[in-house]
Design a protein around this nucleic acid. Structure first.
Lengths: 189, 189
DNA sequence: ACCTGAACACCGTTCAAGT
DNA sequence: ACCTGAACACCGTTCAAGT
């Protein structure tokens, strides 16, 4: 159980937006500190290193998504609507300044990540596969558990890929077109 | 028509591997120069800036892929075998040091790219969609051209996503599992 | 034509010092 | 408890100078 101070929250929020927009490597402690209103050296009072901040960032990102998805599943009965809301999350990220899923962009930068950050990225993927598996299984009750899991992993990868290519094109319409293609193929309901 | 010197080729080859492994932002001119056997300032004799090198890198990457794919299509009649070889290219990239498609990792770093580099990333995507469209159309001759193109774009995004998630997991088996999921869904033949 | 050392403003990080 | 300035070795880039 960890508590965070107000300053820590400000740091996390600002850093998240910066990393989603420009990547982990481009995150400058001096720029981040300027945004928060402190000096770059002060960040080290709250986080031991850039890796430490990155890990906290990824963990919080996963926690927030799980909170949203849990709530979504509790209030939305239709599994197809659940999947639609799921993909909408990734779409909205693009809409907000052509940003990427935090863990998607971290995956691309894997070789530069501290082990603690890599671990959080893997946890994030596992969380997504878990939730997707539950939703997909509720839609196809007769499907074998292993097949459902494989499907869930494919959905995660496909949506991350759609976001990556759309971002590279700088055009949300590409995201929509790719997802339409997934639906025609039967990957998405 | 542009010719490249021997030194330029050495720079391009070394830089490609470095960017695929660690990303564009992490590419250090000092490290690159050390690899080539010159000083970092000398790179500016061949390329006007990091952006200029990045653009040359992406263009060459696209050219090389097109050359391979054209040859592949000329020698392989079966469209399913063509698609299988296509995905194999991405798989092999992962196998060589957990590397990523150059333009995939550049797409993730889009906000930090010079406009000339972004343009090359978009060209790369277009090249892939074009080739995939031709192959898929040969497999489904009755499908409408727009639908084929949408399918092709979906395949590109899906494979890029599979690579991204697999790299984040540091495990090629994830790539294989995702692709198996695509095949079951019908996205891949 | 091709290469270099030295300088510039940047970066993450450390640390002794301030309140 | 919280913050800072100054220093370290890095970075891309420039440029005058070398052969």
């Amino acid at each position: 159980v960890s508590t965070t101070t107000e300053t820590q929250e400000t740091i996390l929020a600002a850093a998240r937006l910066m990393v989603q927009a420009r990547g982990y490597n481009s995150l400058s402690f001096r720029d981040l500190a300027k945004e928060v209103g402190i000096k770059s050296a002060s960040i080290y009072y709250y986080y031991p290193s850039k890796g430490g901040l990155g890990a906290a960032l990824a963990r919080r990102y996963g926690d927030d998504l799980v909170a949203y998805l849990t709530e979504l599943r509790a209030t939305t009965k239709d599994w197809k609507a659940c999947i639609a809301s799921y993909t909408e999350v990734f779409r909205n990220t693009l809409l907000r300044g052509n940003r990427m899923c935090l863990c998607g962009i971290l995956a691309a930068e894997r070789e530069d990540l501290a082990p603690e950050v890599t671990a959080e990225v893997e946890r994030f993927n596992a969380l997504n596969v878990q939730w997707l598996s539950e939703v997909l299984a509720s839609g196809k009750p007769k499907m074998a558990a292993d097949d459902v899991r494989q499907w869930a992993l494919a959905v995660l990868a496909a949506v991350e890929g759609a976001q990556l290519v759309a971002r590279g094109s700088g055009d949300v319409a590409v995201f929509d077109q790719v997802l339409a293609g997934y639906r025609v193929a039967g990957l998405l309901p």
